[in-house]
């Protein structure tokens, strides 16, 4: 595969994760994971042996969800339980919560992202209204970084992944695992971590 195609694929996957973690799935989106391109995507990811177990977990979660009367709402409640309400038993999707001594929001990791965006002439979509260290924002940025760098030097990507993501993703993913619900988002977060780890290994080998 050509490098550019590979990069586009990588970026797309980061954006996919970003979408999944930015807000609840719509009924339309969810349908695609029952019978549609979502299934295809998961199947393709499952072919990678490193991911197969986690993809299976995501798929079983979808089966559980589908069996419930209002799957979209049920999954939304899962999303909320993990990311939107209980910051202690859940897994708030903000780096600050894991990296700052205070455990508060908008701490140094947020500031770093703000500085970075400023340097790059970017800003968070005002409608999203989340701190800049929200996982979905970081992943969105990473996708863009990949496309921008193209086939050039990948040092910026490596740095970003190491400093801004891998610094807190492991405890974040651990936190998701402590929450007991369908397991869909726990699977997604685990898959993200596996994918990032594989990605950084690949980057190092370049």
């Amino acid at each position: 595969m050509k490098n550019s195609e590979n990069n586009e694929q990588r970026a797309s996957l980061y954006w996919w994760f970003s979408t999944l973690l930015s807000k609840e799935l719509t009924t339309e989106q969810l349908t695609h994971y029952f019978s549609g391109e979502g299934v295809e995507l998961l199947n393709q990811l499952a072919q990678e042996s490193l991911f197969s177990e986690t993809v299976t977990q995501i798929k079983s979660a979808l089966v559980i969800i589908m069996a419930i009367k209002q799957p979209t709402l049920e999954l939304a409640a899962d999303f909320s339980q993990l990311f939107l309400t209980d910051a202690k038993k859940g897994a708030p999707p903000y780096a600050s919560v894991y990296l700052s001594k205070s455990g508060q929001l908008f701490e140094k990791p947020h500031q770093e992202m703000v500085e970075l965006f400023k340097k790059e002439g970017l800003m968070v979509d005002p409608n999203f209204k989340e701190p800049a260290d929200h996982i979905a924002i970081q992943l969105d940025y990473l996708g863009n970084l990949i496309i921008k760098e193209g086939e050039n030097n990948s040092q910026a990507q490596t740095n970003f992944i190491n400093n801004q993501l891998l610094s807190w993703l492991p405890p974040f993913v651990e936190a998701t695992k402590r929450v007991n619900n369908s397991g869909f988002y726990q699977g997604v977060c685990q898959l993200l971590l596996l994918f990032i780890k594989q990605d950084i290994t690949a980057l190092k080998q370049q």
Binding site: E8, T19, E40, G121
Partner: peptide
């Protein structure tokens, strides 16, 4: 900022549904 225009490969056909709009803008 890119997103939609690069939905190729793995996500070529489904991208529009599976990937939402970007969260970043040019400041």
């Amino acid at each position: 900022i890119s997103r939609r225009s690069f939905l190729k490969g793995l996500l070529a056909s489904s991208g529009a549904v599976l990937i939402g709009p970007g969260l970043l803008q040019v400041a």
